[in-house]
Simulated scan of single mutants.
Amino acid sequence: MIEIHNIHKTFGDKKVLDGIDGVFESGKMNMLLGASGTGKSVLLKCIVGLVKPDLGSITYDGRIFTNNKLDIRQEIRRKIGMLFQGSALFDSMNVNENVEFPLTMLTDMNRTERKKRVEFCLQRVGLENAGNLMPSELSGGMKKRVGIARAIAPHCTYLFCDEPNSGLDPLTAITIDELIKEITEEYDITTIVVTHDMNSVLEYGDNVMFLYKGKKLWEGHSSGIMDTRVKELNDFIFSNRLMRDAKKIEQIEENEQRDEDIRNGEV
């Protein structure tokens, strides 16, 4: 579990994060939702330690991360896996070497142990036969899978995903979402996903935090997000015709059910 309290961050005269609080549970898909420029990625970078907040605290399973001793922060960082928006694979390394890289940098595994771990991780993401391929030979979905394998290779406790569906077709996007969800639950990982994809949120969001202009305006399970009274969130959710039509259909069905209940004397 990761907890953040009163996180503030300013760049120059621009307030990017304005007092963000939240709890991200283990074994859950915790999603940071919002339009571009709302502070999602900056908050993610603060949580993983790439950006230092001006004010506030971050704890990992009760251990203070912000402003703690360097060795404590490094110990926590070794448990963090990161799936970057563009996968960020090393072009000069094949798939096996990409997945092995964090094991070489962050663990004391010997060559045999690293090889077995790489094989296991690639098998877990369905790429057991792709180890010798170069990144240039992979599709977008395969690159994401390699990125996930690399992220979980050092037995990560915390997984951060920055727009994991970016640039993928709808079917592949669903596959990647399902894979992240499965791994999160299977290994009881605390997963935080930065996204603006409402399909991902509605289908897989165990806990959703909506950011708007650096503030948290709503937080809850995805099952309640369609009924919110927060104007900015509604404007974001129903910004396209498909979502507006879905809302209308939902309201019609609710009205029909209410009328039937009245006729049956249940109301």
Rank of each mutant, 00 (worst) to 15 (best):
Cys161Gly: 08
Tyr187Pro: 01
Val194Ser: 10
Val42Glu: 01
Leu233Thr: 09
Val146Arg: 14
Phe210Trp: 10
Lys248Trp: 01
Pro135Gly: 11
Thr10Gln: 00
Val193Asp: 01
Val201Phe: 15
Ile192Lys: 12
Arg77Ser: 08
Ala151Glu: 04
Gln123Glu: 06
Ile225Met: 15
Glu3Ile: 03
Gly147Pro: 14
Glu185Phe: 00
Ile225Gln: 13
Thr10Asn: 00
Phe90Gln: 09
Glu163Met: 01
Phe24Thr: 03
Thr107Pro: 10
Phe160Lys: 02
Met209Phe: 12
Glu182Ile: 01
Leu179Asp: 01
Asp169Trp: 02
Gln257Phe: 02
Leu106Thr: 07
Asn129Val: 02
Lys52Pro: 00
Ile72Gln: 12
Thr157Leu: 11
Lys15Leu: 05
Val201Leu: 14
Leu202Lys: 15
Lys144Ala: 03
Glu75Thr: 06
Leu89Asp: 11
Gly81Lys: 11
Leu70His: 09
Leu127Tyr: 11
Ile225Ser: 13
Glu137Ala: 10
Lys79Gly: 04
Gly224Ser: 13
Asp18Ile: 05
Phe101His: 08
Gly19Met: 07
Ser239Lys: 15
Phe90Trp: 13
Val16Gly: 01
Ile176His: 01
Asp18His: 10
Phe120Glu: 06
Ile80Phe: 09
Ile7Thr: 04
Lys213Thr: 02
Leu17Ile: 02
Thr195Arg: 15
Ile180Val: 13
Ser139Ala: 11
Asp206Ile: 04
Asn207Lys: 13
Gly141Tyr: 14
Thr195Leu: 14
Lys79Asn: 09
Gln251Ala: 14
Glu163Thr: 01
Asp18Gly: 03
Phe120Met: 06
Gln74Lys: 13
Asp259Lys: 15
Thr107Phe: 12
Thr195Glu: 14
Asn96Met: 05
Ala173Lys: 00
Thr228Arg: 14
Leu44Phe: 11
Ile152Asn: 04
Asp21Arg: 07
Arg117His: 05
Phe160Met: 08
Asn110Leu: 06
Ile152Glu: 08
Thr195Phe: 15
Lys45Thr: 02
Val48Arg: 13
Thr175Pro: 00
Leu168Asn: 05
Arg77Glu: 06
Ala149Lys: 12
Ala246Ile: 09
Ser92Asp: 10
Met243Glu: 10
Ser136Cys: 10
Ser200Ile: 12
Pro164His: 00
Ser223Gly: 15
Asp71Gly: 06
Glu250Pro: 00
Val194Gly: 11
Ala35Leu: 09
Met209Leu: 08
Glu219Met: 08
His155Leu: 05
Lys144Asn: 04
Ser222Glu: 13
Arg111Thr: 04
